[in-house]
């Protein structure tokens, strides 16, 4: 299965924007996204243990909801750079079904071309992706259990 292109609009915008920037500007771009995340609404009550993603050097919270047949995510962190990264990940891959999310791979993360930009960024972003995949699968199982 291929992920429909219209579902990756935000992801492709990030790819194109980052492609135009040099390394230093990419660093500042992510910081800008991180700062903008603060202006979006992330429910403060969701910055709790239940939504905490374990294993990060900074704290990362991800909230999952389901809308229009797709999974939606919002992310938050206590570090601005990580806030930028989690915002890019949740923005890029919201709206996908579980099956589509499962097709998102390390290649997509590499496609953002964050290269040598931030410390342990690819490992961290892959961990975010895996967490989102897990949340979507768990939600599907929960729906299936309710309908049985």
């Amino acid at each position: 299965m291929i992920i429909p292109a219209e579902k990756l609009t935000q992801y492709n915008e990030y790819v194109e924007a980052l492609d135009l920037l040099d390394e230093e500007s990419r660093f500042e771009y992510i910081i800008d996204i991180g700062k903008r995340t603060d202006k979006a609404t992330f429910p403060p009550e969701c910055m709790d243990q239940a939504h905490l993603m374990h294993g990060c050097m900074s704290k990362v919270w991800i909230v999952h909801t389901q809308e229009d047949g797709g999974h939606r995510f919002r992310g938050q962190s206590d570090a601005i750079i990580v806030k930028g990264l989690v915002s890019m990940m949740t923005g890029s891959f919201s709206g996908l079904t579980s099956a589509e999310l499962a097709k998102v791979t390390l290649d997509h993360v590499r496609g953002l071309n964050l290269g040598a930009l931030t410390m342990q960024r690819q490992v961290g972003m892959m961990a975010m992706l895996k967490h989102m995949q897990k949340l979507s699968q768990r939600a599907d199982l929960s729906v299936a259990a309710d309908s049985n």
């Binding site: 230093e24 750079i81 990580v82 410390m119």
Partner: peptide, 20 residues
Amino acid sequence: IHPFDTAAAMDRAGVAARVG
């Protein structure tokens, strides 16, 4: 400022430090 962000700014300047 989160230590991770501080260390990231140091890294951009070529300064290798530890955070955590």
